[in-house]
């Protein structure tokens, strides 16, 4: 058995196991074969099969756990820590619970992006998993209001000045640009109207570079992510975790060449994913555009491309 055949068989076993145990049986081998037919030669196919075997998928269960972690680790524990500091390091359960409930009542959770996008879509699960009241969730337009009902009145006030915590939840912080947009359009306005309001941005996942940018340049009080993708997650970077020991005949250089060749056809501006993120990541609800387009591209029908983890793209028109 030559290297090609051996590696092909091993990758098939790995992909079968991934499909069964991680990908929630979303993919069967015939899907893989159809996807591989996008590529011309056997060598291209084996390089891409290897990339697929490295794909990181976060299913419903994992996402729900991460949403719990955002609430518990990023929000609740911070508040409890403040309560204890304010109360002489108390361990009294009733004191802590009582004060926490008060803080929670002065909190609003919001999604990032358009209501049809994934950031806001996740709020439903966030509320379910953390057993939170519906009243704790608002849309961004519900943060402020005109002072009077007169439409000529341009004075904007906070709709509920009692609110102390505004928590923005997002699925992925890629470049960090959207966080800066939110900072400029919403956070600055909140801070202007209520300087002591605590406005936080929490993402399930983030590119390290994006989250650093957001931390540095945004007006959010807290900018954090549960799962950070550093440069080792960029699949063709010199630190790539995916190519530590690729099986023969797979190499980083060859795989990159193939990904670029087809990526350039599919999305000429970003052949290796938006902002050149080079991710190999997908979620149960969507595949981010920071992932290689050869994985998810399903847009331009003239390209006749069959994706393996389809992206439900944002249509801004």
């Amino acid at each position: 058995m030559d290297d090609f055949e051996k590696t092909y068989d091993e990758l098939k076993i790995k992909i079968k196991n991934l499909s069964e145990y991680i990908w929630q049986n979303r993919i069967i081998w015939t899907d893989v074969e159809v996807w591989l037919n996008n590529f011309e030669t056997n060598d291209e196919k084996i390089q891409m099969l290897f990339l697929l075997s490295q794909f990181m998928y976060f299913g419903d269960k994992e996402l729900r756990e991460l949403l719990k972690a955002i609430y518990r680790d990023k929000y609740k524990y911070k508040i409890i820590s403040d309560i204890r500091i304010r109360n002489d390091s108390t361990l009294d359960f009733n004191t802590i619970t009582g004060e926490f409930d008060k803080e929670l009542a002065r909190t609003k959770f919001l999604g990032v992006g358009n209501p049809s996008e994934s950031g806001t879509h996740l709020l439903y699960f966030f509320r379910q998993e953390n057993k939170l009241a519906k009243s704790l969730f608002i849309n961004t337009h519900e943060i402020t209001a005109r002072e009077s009902k007169d439409s000529t009145d341009k004075k904007i006030i906070l709709r509920n000045p009692e609110i102390k915590h505004y928590i923005f939840i997002d699925d992925l912080c890629g470049s960090g640009n959207q966080v800066l947009d939110y900072s400029r359009d919403i956070v600055e306005e909140i801070k202007r109207l209520k300087p002591d309001a605590v406005v936080s941005y929490y993402a399930l996942f983030a590119m390290s570079s994006g989250i650093q940018k957001a931390k540095r340049f945004s007006k959010f009080d807290h900018v954090e992510a549960i799962y950070e993708f550093d440069s080792s997650f960029s699949c063709f970077s010199s630190k790539s975790r995916h190519f530590k020991k690729p099986p023969s005949p797979v190499t980083l250089e060859k795989a990159k060449e193939v990904a670029l060749k087809y990526g350039n056809r599919l999305w000429p501006g970003f052949p290796l994913g938006y902002n050149n993120c080079q991710l190999l990541v997908g979620f149960q609800h969507n595949t981010p555009d920071n992932t290689l387009p050869i994985i998810w591209f399903d847009e331009d029908q003239s390209e006749r491309w069959t994706p393996i983890f389809k992206r439900y793209n944002k249509n801004y028109n």
Partner: peptide, 8 residues
């Protein structure tokens, strides 16, 4: 069985 199902 697993492979048969995986192979469609």
């Amino acid at each position: 069985y697993q492979y048969s199902a995986f192979n469609g």
